[in-house]
């Protein structure tokens, strides 16, 4: 099941602008390897789910996947063949707002080659440029 918020304070928020780099959530915190966004944009709940499924298959029972993002933002869409002036469309999907530098997913407890394969496959499910990160050691 795709991720979605349990409740919303506002049904149809503005689209907003994505400014600056990620100042939080930009390091590998839980696993050994991470997938970091290099661009700003939205990642939809369906894309997160697609990445999760492909990672589960690539990991084949080894290691653990951490999803570091959540689709908080409802996005509306007007149905096709709708005339002008019928008002704002219904919520179509939910998206996570991503700043450059955000760590999207992490993998822990897997061999490096397996983790790399999984992260590479996940990156193909995402609309943003990404790079692989390694956990930074205490020293």
């Amino acid at each position: 099941m795709s991720l979605m918020p349990k409740r919303l304070k506002w049904r149809k928020p503005h689209r907003g602008r994505i400014k600056g780099n990620a100042t939080r959530g930009n390091t590998v915190a839980y696993g050994d390897y991470g997938l970091q966004s290099l661009e700003a944009g939205w990642i939809t709940a369906a894309q997160i789910e697609a990445a999760r499924v492909t990672a589960t298959r690539a990991l084949a029972g080894t290691g653990r996947l951490y999803i570091r993002i959540f689709p908080h933002k409802p996005v509306t869409a007007t149905p096709e063949e709708t005339r002008m002036g019928t008002g704002k469309g219904d919520i179509s999907y939910y998206a996570a707002v991503i700043r450059p530098g955000t760590v999207l997913f992490e993998i822990g407890g897997a061999e490096e080659l397996v983790a790399k394969k999984a992260l590479n496959r996940m990156s193909h499910k995402l609309p943003l440029g990404t790079k692989m990160l390694r956990r930074r050691e205490a020293r």
């Binding site: 099941m1 795709s2 979605m4 918020p5 349990k6 409740r7 919303l8 304070k9 506002w10 049904r11 409802p74 919520i91």
Partner: peptide, 12 residues
């Protein structure tokens, strides 16, 4: 998967 699609979040 289909079951999950129907559930809408609690709005304002």
């Amino acid at each position: 998967l289909e079951e999950g699609e129907g559930a809408a979040p609690e709005g304002d």
